[in-house]
Amino acid sequence: MENKKTELKVSALENGTVIDHIPTGHVLQVMRILNLENFEDQIYFGANLDSKKYGKKGLIKVSNRFFEDLEINKISLVAPTATLIEIRNFDVTKKSGVTIPDTVEGFAKCINPKCITNHQKVATKFYVTDKDDLKMKCHYCEKITKKNDVEFL
């Protein structure tokens, strides 16, 4: 029953993207990272949905919006399990996962309180040094920010 409802919602999308399997609790964060808060077309989102694979999950459906890899990979830091489903004319045209990018620019915060990026208007930039157990090295202060410390701007 639950499954059928989800399917119905998905199929109701004529053109757009479904972002599925978002760790529950990170849906709003994903919306913020993708700058969907100011998006003007229809968006559906849900949290605490039942998932066979993960127990609970979050899901976002965006009408008439498709994402470039570079853009979507930003969410991999908080939602590495996310699946992307592109829909055109009610048909699924592409399904893909997300991969952690080599560089992370402009949306994550440096852990170092003495870093220039935490004091002046300087966009953050990190080099990902470990993708399995996320570690990012700040381009400016050279300190490492780890997965559990990642905060988003």
């Binding site: 170092n112 220039i116 202060c141």
Partner: peptide
């Protein structure tokens, strides 16, 4: 400069070269 990464930032603003004489506890 007392802030870490400040010299890197300064060096990327324009073509004038920068020598870091110490940025906080960094370099």
């Amino acid at each position: 400069h007392p802030l870490e990464g400040s010299s890197r930032f300064a060096s990327e603003l324009n073509d004038t070269p920068v020598i870091n004489a110490g940025d906080g506890a960094n370099q």
